[in-house]
Simulated scan of single mutants.
Amino acid sequence: MEYLNDMALFVEVVKMRGFRGAAESLGMPNSTLSRRISGLEKAIGLRLLHRTTRKIELTEAGQLYFERCKRIVEEARLAHEQLGEMLARPSGLLRASLPVDFATIYLAPLIAEFAHEYPGISFEFDLTPRQVDLISDPVDVVIRMGEPPDSNLIARKLASLQRGLYASHRYLELFGEPDHPSQLTDHECLRMRGPGADLWTLSSAAGNEQVTVGGRFELNSVGMLRRLASLDLGIALLPAGIAAQDVSNGTLQRVLPQWQASPVSVYALTETRLLPAKTQRFIEFLRDKLECV
């Protein structure tokens, strides 16, 4: 049974990428934690970690042991949690990776509401567009816009966000308002960087139109697209919820309102279907709220 406790300690050390962070998370002395892991290696008869003054690295045996232990520890914790009050009133630290602009503009009010509803949960957010490794990074859930990559991760769809064209009143006064998607070729179009950035497909009751667009700005931030559009620099293709505040205050207006692009999906990605209550409630809450948009 001591092995089970030491497995949990080992998993935390790997997740936190070091003894100091793990010791703080576990509320135990660094020296005690190091001694327990050394004892575990001695009992197994294999070195699990390469230790340096700056970081730790898993050995080949350590990587295999971590992958097995992580699931064992997680399932043991879930067995306790799902039988207790925590399922109804979850607590603990929720680590989530969120897309910067979507989180700042769209998710922040929902997160505030969730935090009020579940006061026992504390939060650690990593706002980044980078690909997160749910096995080695200390993250419980990743929220991403767009179709998820093919992988072994579990993807749960949270929402489909409607997208339309938006521009400032000043830009439209200067350059005119298009009456048909084909006229977008005569405009500055603010584009998200990536495959197909210059080819916009729009649909209406009249059918579908594909138009090749151009302009001086191509970037990887939907928040920056929204900001540049509000500064009279062109027409942007944005999720309606992202543009809603600017439309409400008159900074932006809908262009070609009868036309829209295909919705952009929002997904929650996790390593496993077996989720602790805090993560499960967070995903369910976001799905319920985002389904309304």
Rank of each mutant, 00 (worst) to 15 (best):
M1K: 04
M7I: 00
V11M: 01
V14D: 06
R17D: 11
R20C: 10
A23D: 07
S25I: 00
L26E: 09
G27W: 08
S31Y: 07
L33P: 02
L33E: 08
S38C: 00
L48E: 02
E57K: 14
T59L: 05
Y65R: 12
V73A: 05
A79D: 11
E81M: 05
A88M: 11
S91K: 14
L93V: 12
R95W: 04
L110K: 11
E117I: 09
P119E: 09
G120M: 06
D137R: 03
D137I: 01
V141M: 10
R144Y: 04
P149K: 14
L153V: 01
L153M: 10
I154M: 07
I154W: 02
L161R: 11
L161K: 07
Q162W: 05
S168I: 14
L174G: 00
G176P: 08
H180S: 10
T185A: 12
D186M: 08
D198H: 14
W200M: 03
L202P: 01
L202V: 09
N208D: 15
T212A: 13
V213I: 15
G223C: 13
M224D: 07
S230A: 15
G234S: 11
A240V: 02
G241S: 13
I242W: 00
V247L: 15
T251R: 14
S262H: 07
P263V: 02
L275C: 06
P276V: 09
K278E: 15
F282M: 04
L286T: 01
C292W: 10
V293G: 02
